[in-house]
Design a protein around this nucleic acid. Structure first.
Lengths: 301, 301
DNA sequence: TGAATGCGATAGGAAAAACCTATGATCACT
DNA sequence: AGTGATCATAGGTTTTTCCTATCGCATTCA
């Protein structure tokens, strides 16, 4: 097989017109260079260099081949450059997945910070529900995912970053008391509809899990795909909903439109975390990402 | 230094998603391929392949690098193709020089024949006077030259191909006898102007040499750059000229416009030949060219 | 014309790289 | 827990690449 070395040596001869000086240029001895040039010529079945008494000159074929060699070598250089670009922590292309109930309320803080700390990072974003994200993560279509824990999958690495509490939202006209118990379960069961996200959203399952069996038979909404819609429904007293604080913090003036009631004992909510395949070679990078997500997630809480 | 082998192996992994099968694809053992991939990764300072329990998958950087590798390998393939194209007798690019007093009268026969016999040949033509051609030949700007011999230059290889006789042309109104002697020397000296090509054309010197010293003091034309012009001048009885038979054969109907007188004892003329640098690696190719020039030159005489 | 200089080619042996076979470690699946 | 598949590691061999020393040839200079 033809080698890059040989092309490099040919280029040196094209530059110097001289075996000896070409050898010097590439830091080998003249016989070694001669041998490689000859090997290249043998391989190609063509004489590339005309040997003169005062040096060497490329033949017409040699000129053509040398021009091609130059392009190839430069492409190899670019390849190395490209690899170098992706070195260092969180540099180069990273495909990040994130669930819809986090993305719009967290990315506005995360992305600018990533730009500042990891300017070499080229992020490719993907937003969809957990199940789909995990499928794509396992398929290798994604590198790392931000979602709500826990994830039951032995082959992934998990980092819990911060806790996002759920707050109960009801219409202004209602006056549900917060008594730090598992609270308005009876009210909901008897008087109110529990508004939910549509199926597949982790937020739906998590909301249902807050009361678990207490809720059997209660009225539930059919499910919406958007948290803003959920809020509007609450405003119009069509029911109550659990809203993540992450969302609430982003909706300025929300507390004037609905009653927000903080729960406790224990406080319901979700754990936001970062996950990636255990086999992914850039685990340490994602560790850095998880650390940043924790920082941002806790500071705004 | 990074090697083409490594790029080839990486490409194999991209194709198969599997170290073992990739190794099979490139006909080496799996450990050897593993080692080369690792060497490549070390050299680039980046992990390119994610090792899984059921195979291998490229990282995002790996995808990028593999795509680049593919292009590079294909460029190398094209390079080899290009070299192959220029193999064989008289294949590929050849820069041919030829003097103006041959080119228009010989190329119409030579070029079609070259096309037929050596379809792989890409001829680049250069037409100028002998001195310039020889300079360019020695500089390596030309590969081979067709001209009038002899050429006094020890570093070139020479092949005489055919003899191109000179024929005396005078106006139809004149009736110069041809008596097989050095002939109309006295007539020319006394009555006629000897029409000549301009300085630098070998034909001029050769014409003068035919009579040599006999011609001292004779009237000479200032010199024209075109043999057709020379002929017109003869037609109009502005003088006489020596015309190469090569030219005459191409000018149909010329014998009706001027008297053509064949000379002898010995017959004046020029030796057409092919020359190239002794160091040129494709000497055997030019031998083939010379042979063809001889064939064509003698068959039409 | 004969010595000196400069060029690439050749020869022989040493160093480095690439490779192969056999084996190990890990993981998935039965 | 056992089996089969994966890639990694180990040790030794083969192949390739390289270096030093020398040759042969041509040109240049005295």
């Amino acid at each position: 097989m033809i080698t890059l070395k040989q092309l490099r040596y040919l280029e040196a001869i094209a530059q110097t017109g001289h075996f000896g000086r070409a050898a010097e240029l590439v830091h080998i001895s003249q016989p070694a260079l001669s041998a490689q040039i000859r090997a290249l010529e043998d391989r190609l079945g063509t004489i590339l260099v005309e040997r003169l008494s005062n040096g060497a000159r490329l033949t017409t074929v040699g000129e053509d081949i040398a021009a091609r060699a130059k392009k190839i070598l430069s492409a190899v250089g670019e390849l190395q450059e490209a690899a170098k670009m992706s070195q260092g922590v969180l540099a180069g292309r990273v495909r990040l997945g994130i669930i819809p109930s986090i993305a719009p309320y967290f990315l506005p803080k995360l992305l600018p910070e990533l730009d500042v700390r990891f300017p070499q990072l080229q992020l490719e974003l993907r937003e969809t529900i957990t199940e789909q994200l995990m499928r794509e993560l396992m398929d290798g279509a994604l590198d790392v995912v931000i979602l709500s824990l826990p994830i039951d999958e032995p082959t992934i690495e998990t980092r819990a970053c911060f806790f996002d509490p759920f707050v109960l939202a009801c219409a202004k006209s209602r006056d549900l008391r917060a008594d730090n118990s598992r609270f308005p379960a009876k009210d909901i069961l008897n008087e109110q509809t529990l508004l939910l996200m549509e199926d597949g959203h982790c937020l739906r399952d998590q909301t249902l899990k807050v009361w678990e069996s207490e809720l059997t038979g209660a009225r539930r909404s059919g499910g919406v795909s958007n948290m803003a819609t959920l809020t509007h429904l609450v405003e119009q007293d069509r029911g109550v909903a659990l809203l993540p604080e992450l969302f609430i913090n982003c909706e300025s003036g929300l507390s004037e439109r609905v009653n927000l009631i903080r729960l406790g004992n224990p406080e319901p909510g979700r754990q936001i975390g970062v996950v990636w395949r255990k086999t992914h070679p850039r685990g340490s990078d994602f560790d850095a990402l998880a650390k940043l997500v924790r920082e941002i997630g806790t500071q705004q809480a």
